[in-house]
Simulated scan of single mutants.
Amino acid sequence: METENLTRVSEFLLLGLSEEPELQPLIFGLFLSMYLITVLGNLLIILAVSSDSHLHTPMYFFLCNLSLVDICFTSTTVPKMLVNIQTLSKVITYGGCITQMYFFLLFAGLDDFLLTVMAYDRFVAICLPLHYTVIMNPRVCVLLVFASWITSALSSLLQSLMVLRLPFCTDLEIPHFICELHEMIQLACSDTFLINMVMYFIVGLLGGGPLAGILYSYSKIVSSICGISSAQGKYKAFSTCASHLSVVSLFYCTSLGVYLSSAGTHSSHSTAIASVMYTVVTPMLNPFIYSLRNENIKRALKRFFGRISRNYNLDIFWRLLLSLL
């Protein structure tokens, strides 16, 4: 197949979830709604944690970072998709595609690392409660988040630089709604064996490693909870990690579902549809899981809205909103 020099590649075509014209308004409305809910829900979590001094603890510090990452994760992909639908265009520039891929890998990795850090936090809180304040001091919490950012940034940079070196064929259509790494490698005209091996190694190391850490932490947590004599004590210990366990299950089940479906069907279109679960649906559901299952978050939100209503005389509006919490 005839190839083009890398410098001549100026744009790619994102085919999206469907090429049916009658479905575009439905897809646009659905994704716009999910994006607005994701941004609003995660912003509320950040506001609740930052405005309430009772929530200035390691667990909520990590939750605040997770909400910020979820906003950025969704903002990396959905706005471009909405613009393409609205303008009836499928074009994304070469630079825009590489940039989107880099930030997509960055925030996906950060989600993974932060969930692992939160599992470690719960492990220390339940298994080593007397040493919790010493081990999880503010300096350690900041270092854990900083290390997550650095590791994810370096891994996504490495993978992006490998794609930058690839020559692409004349067919530059990406059967996805994002510039996904695997789909871009498929478009290359050169031998991609090495980059595939590096990609699988990074996924195995940075995906399997955190998962193993989470499983280890929860095995110790379950063992400690089983050792508690009173039923009330068991319930209290489990309730402190129930929300996190729900988010972890949702994130890994949807991520594994995408890769298993792609391996089983070998259909890029099916993979793109399945990818919606962990790229859009999971960040949207995380705030609901934490707010509905966490009384501290609900109380913080009520206090926050209460102060706003007193300051701006919005009693009727906020009473209606608070009744939904």
Rank of each mutant, 00 (worst) to 15 (best):
I225W: 05
G213F: 02
S223H: 13
G204R: 04
I221Y: 01
S239M: 12
Q186F: 12
V203C: 12
G233C: 11
G227V: 08
S239F: 07
S230H: 06
C189Q: 01
I195M: 00
L187W: 00
G233I: 12
P210K: 01
V203E: 13
F238E: 00
S239D: 15
I195T: 02
M197S: 10
G209D: 06
M197V: 11
L206R: 05
C189L: 04
S223W: 12
C241F: 00
L187P: 02
F201L: 12
F201D: 13
T192W: 10
S224D: 03
C226H: 10
A188N: 07
D191H: 05
G209R: 05
P210L: 01
I221M: 04
F193K: 14
Y216C: 04
T240F: 01
G213S: 13
T192F: 10
K220L: 08
A188E: 06
G233R: 04
G207R: 02
Q232N: 13
S230Q: 03
I221T: 09
S219W: 08
G213K: 04
S217G: 06
G209S: 06
V203P: 05
S190T: 14
V222S: 09
Y216M: 07
G207T: 11
Y235A: 13
Y235N: 12
V222A: 14
G208T: 01
V222R: 06
L205M: 10
A237P: 00
G208P: 00
T192R: 08
S229D: 09
G209H: 06
Y235E: 13
L205H: 12
G204T: 06
A212R: 03
N196H: 03
I228H: 07
I185G: 00
M199R: 15
M199V: 05
S224N: 09
S223C: 15
V222D: 05
A231L: 13
L211T: 01
S239E: 14
P210H: 03
S230D: 06
A231Q: 15
Y200M: 15
Y216Q: 07
A188S: 14
L205N: 12
S217Y: 01
S219G: 05
Q186H: 10
Y235C: 11
C226D: 11
S223L: 15
F238Y: 06
S219T: 10
A237L: 04
S230C: 08
K236F: 12
I225D: 10
K220Q: 14
S224H: 09
G233M: 10
V203L: 14
G227R: 15
F201C: 11
I228P: 07
I195Q: 02
L211N: 00
Y216R: 06
G204W: 05
S219F: 09
C189V: 00
S219D: 08
V203R: 13
F238W: 11
C189F: 02
S230E: 08
K220A: 09
I214C: 09
F201Q: 11
S217C: 09
I228L: 11
G227I: 10
G227M: 11
K220D: 08
A188V: 07
T192A: 09
F193G: 07
A237F: 04
S217L: 02
Y235P: 02
S239R: 10
A212W: 09
K234P: 03
S229R: 07
Y216E: 03
I202M: 13
S229I: 10
C241D: 01
S217K: 02
K220Y: 08
G213A: 08
L187N: 03
G207I: 07
M199K: 14
K234M: 09
I214T: 03
I225Q: 11
G208K: 01
S217T: 06
D191E: 11
S230K: 05
N196S: 11
L205W: 14
